[in-house]
């Protein structure tokens, strides 16, 4: 792949590649923007830059991840995602065949989610100034009336639910990247969650908080929610779903699965009285089949997220400050 003046032909080539895979009426307008009439209601918009090594991993690649990640960020407001925009930064020399694979994967993800990519841009940077391929996606969605989901809505007494097993994505990535050979067993959970969210909102319109525990894992997400809402949380270690293969890999590597990234899971916080209904709705959906109630929101001026261990201890599940380093002296 060329860069600069000599890359003009290449830009043409890339453009055609996108058109071929992502073809839809808005993209076909060939403008620098997509023009449409928004449906009535409140709009949400979210953007995310996707950077990942390796670009291809068991259960997905950076293309599908860029689609799922932004759809999920939009969906966590309880919204129905409408459109996506995508920006690519490619490193000079990035194989065209790989790009073809990525864009095809994006197209498939977008099609199966029913959320078209309607505008985009590509830049090629000099060799050594990028890491193969970065993708930024922006998503637009509409929030149904009566839904007011936000990270500051958790109240003491609320139930804390997760939609399925934790750590699958992060361990799949690590396994691939570090050449650790659990690759065959563990696949990324990368998935678009808006359909699950729609089912959940239909069952319990008054859900308080939704968030996808991506980077930093469940621990970081719950700490963010606790801080935003000014509350504490109490989890039960035994109730947190973790696949045996993921648990074993974490055990081996010395990782805490609560800090490992997920790309197809969500955390939901709702009134305790709604918890059973919400849990049932989640479990009725294929992406929530392993959903579980893992703890509760409590009043706590310290805003601790704490976890009852299997021995009955109360361990703080802290924010992660940079790299995890042992604290034992």
């Amino acid at each position: 792949m060329g860069h600069g003046a000599g890359g003009r032909a290449m830009a043409q080539l890339i453009d055609e590649l996108f058109q071929r895979h992502l073809d839809n009426p808005l993209l076909r307008q060939h403008n620098d923007q997509a023009l449409f009439t928004p449906p009535p209601g409140r709009l949400v918009i979210s953007t995310d830059g996707h950077v990942i090594t390796p670009l291809f991993f068991p259960g997905g690649d950076i293309g599908s991840l860029a689609v799922h990640g932004t759809i999920n960020d939009v969906a966590m407001a309880g919204a129905r995602p409408l459109y996506l925009a995508a920006g690519f930064v490619l490193e000079e020399g990035f194989p065209l065949a790989d790009l073809d694979r990525l864009v095809a994967s994006m197209a498939a993800a977008s099609r199966s989610a029913g959320v078209p990519i309607v505008t985009g841009d590509t830049k090629v940077v000099e060799r050594g100034k990028g890491d193969g391929c970065f993708i930024t996606t922006t998503g637009l969605g509409v929030v149904p009336d009566g839904v007011a989901i936000s990270g500051d809505q958790a109240r003491p007494g609320d139930a804390v639910l997760v939609s399925g097993s934790l750590g699958d994505h992060g361990v799949a990535i690590l396994s691939q990247r570090e050449g650790l050979g659990f690759a065959t067993e563990i696949r990324s959970d990368s998935a678009a969650l808006h359909d699950l969210v729609a089912a959940m909102v239909a069952a319990v319109p008054g859900i308080h908080c939704l968030r996808d525990p991506t980077r930093g894992g469940l621990a970081t997400t719950l700490n963010e929610l606790a801080r935003q809402s000014g509350v504490g949380m109490r989890l039960r270690e035994a109730a947190i779903p973790i696949q045996p293969a993921v648990a074993a890999a974490c055990e081996l590597l010395g990782l805490d699965p609560l800090y490992v990234a997920n790309e197809g899971k969500l955390v939901a916080i709702c009134a305790a009285d709604d918890a059973d209904i919400l849990l049932a709705a989640m479990r009725a959906h294929p992406l929530g089949a392993q959903a579980a109630r893992i703890g509760e929101v409590v009043a706590d001026p310290h805003r601790f997220v704490q976890m009852e261990t299997r021995f009955g201890g109360q361990r703080i599940v802290d924010w992660l400050a940079g790299e995890p380093l042992p604290r034992i002296c």
Binding site: G254, P324, L325, R327
Partner: peptide
């Protein structure tokens, strides 16, 4: 090195 970080402290064989 401490392979496994904190785990190496709990499992001295590492």
């Amino acid at each position: 090195p401490l392979p496994g970080g904190g785990k190496a402290i709990l499992e001295p064989w590492r």
